[in-house]
Amino acid sequence: MSTPMAAAAQHASGDRDSAAPGALPLSIYDLTVAYHSKPVLWDVSLDVPPGKLVGIVGPNGAGKSTLFKAVMELVPRASGRVLVFGKPYRQNRRRVGYVPQRESVDWDFPVSALDVVTMGLYGKIGWCLPVTRKYRQAAMKALERVGIADLAHRQISHLSGGQQQRTFLARALVQDADLYLMDEPFAAVDAATERVIVDILQELKSAGKTLMVIHHDLQTVVDYFDYVVLLNMRVVAAGTTAETFTSENLQKTYGGKLTLLDQATEAMRRSEGSR
């Protein structure tokens, strides 16, 4: 079932046991994830090169968010191995910044934009210790960077969708990570926010950071990303945008070529149900 591109990606992973300082930002080997014994990701293997702006593209339910969650050990892995800069995630957690989907939280929560950004620093502050001024200033700087410092003390439900997304981005920026996982940062944002986010992504990239961005708008993929991963329960193709983002690969990702996989899934579910 593996496509030439996915196979190439697998070959490229080469010798994988070296946890040298030059290790890849993210290496995934044979990752399978299932929710309620329904597989969401099957045998995903992926090597993400450093310093790239990587777009992750695929239809709804393709397992894009699950891929991020599996990398960060937020969902149990049925099988497979994930290395972040050559080590398991829990040993390199601080080098990873995460921007969850905006819809994943209740925006009526009684906190300000500054509070939310400060949450990115809780790990550094440590258990049971209060947020001191030093950390609030760092959070403020991140808000300035995304251009909404003037809204720092506004309760988050009084922010527009774009401003909420910028708040989440600032919370990831404040961690000063080396690998960023961003779950649909461009979803339902205004044009101004989109520009701000694109600028920041470019800035981070030129600072040598690696960025993985789940993206829905196929129109802008070529403009924004220099590397793409086409995902639909498995890696359909991965590589530079110029080589990988072809109509043939898109057809494979979005088209109806997954009947076999669907049947296997259905069969597994039935056997689970009959038990």
Partner: peptide, 17 residues
């Protein structure tokens, strides 16, 4: 602080360890 993070965004809290 920890409860606030838990209540607001458990996914992010889990990603921070």
């Amino acid at each position: 602080k920890e409860f606030k993070l838990l209540c607001f965004d458990e996914g992010f809290a889990a990603s921070r360890g």
